[in-house]
């Protein structure tokens, strides 16, 4: 295929969202409140990392400079990551982790449901496989929002605090980027503002069931798509990339 910088950038955005959230969730491995939840979070993390490897591999082909998924994941600095800010936010407690998953997976499911009809066959194929995985992630997170929100006073307070933390990063999910216009016009990329009504509908329904309110509107924090990340991403990468940085090209 001919090199296409815009397409490569789009694939990086999709891949980095999954990669960074997958890495975040892996931090729970061995620390979750119950063995069953430990496995559930690890399963979700592995689904996401699998998606990332497909998107990043495709980004390498679109870029045409010989980079593969590993070189994108392990040999890029924070400024070159294109994930949204929501996925790099710290895990906090279990409620905060679930608040992030709830807001993100419901969005990602809607995104992939459209992306599976992309005019680009590779992106469509990846999305078609991933949308089933993400539907379960959303289901899992929705269930926990209801349990925690409509649970004890403590679980409720922690869930509200988690939503408050994450909410300001959701505006970025629906931000139309002029740089992607050619891809949207060609039916390759999803026009994200169009996802908002369905997303709000889903979020509000689950929150109502959880007896929680939609967090108050606030000024959105954005910049992830152009590499302006929070300090949290650097720490995440230093852990994720340590081995390849210290022992370049190491295999096992």
């Amino acid at each position: 295929m001919l090199p296409d910088a815009t397409l490569a950038d789009y694939a990086l955005r999709l891949g980095d969202d999954s990669l960074v959230l997958g890495q975040r969730l892996s931090e729970w491995c061995g620390h979750a409140p119950m063995l069953e939840i430990d496995l559930a979070l690890s399963n979700i993390a592995l689904d996401l990392i699998g998606q990332a490897s497909h998107f990043l591999k495709f980004a390498g082909r679109a870029e045409g400079r010989g980079r593969d998924a590993d070189s994108f994941a392990f040999r890029r600095d924070a400024l070159d990551f294109r994930n949204c800010l929501l996925v790099e936010q710290p895990n906090g407690d279990f409620a905060q982790t679930m608040a992030r998953q709830f807001l993100f997976s419901n969005w990602q499911e809607l995104l992939f449901a459209q992306l599976q009809h992309s005019a680009n066959d590779t992106l469509a194929d990846i999305a078609r496989k991933a949308v089933k995985e993400v539907a379960y992630h959303a289901h899992f997170a929705n269930e926990w929002m209801v349990r925690l929100g409509d649970g004890t006073e403590e679980s409720r307070a922690r869930t509200i605090a988690g939503l408050e933390w994450m909410w300001r990063f959701t505006g970025e999910l629906f931000e139309r980027d002029p740089a992607l216009k050619p891809l949207v016009d060609a039916g390759v990329a999803v026009d994200v503002p169009s996802l908002r009504p369905d997303w709000e509908d889903r979020i509000s329904r689950t929150l109502a069931e959880a007896r929680l309110e939609l967090p108050k509107p606030r000024r959105w924090v954005m910049g992830g798509r152009v590499g302006h990340h929070s300090e949290h991403l650097g720490h995440l990468l230093s852990e994720m990339q340590f081995l390849q940085r210290a022992y370049p090209g190491a295999m096992w």
Partner: peptide, 20 residues
């Protein structure tokens, strides 16, 4: 076996632990 607060959670935990 799995630990779970109710039947619904038990199904999900069983899905994650035993059918992956």
């Amino acid at each position: 076996s799995v630990h779970a607060a109710d039947a619904r959670m038990a199904i999900e935990a069983a899905r994650d632990v035993y059918t992956r």
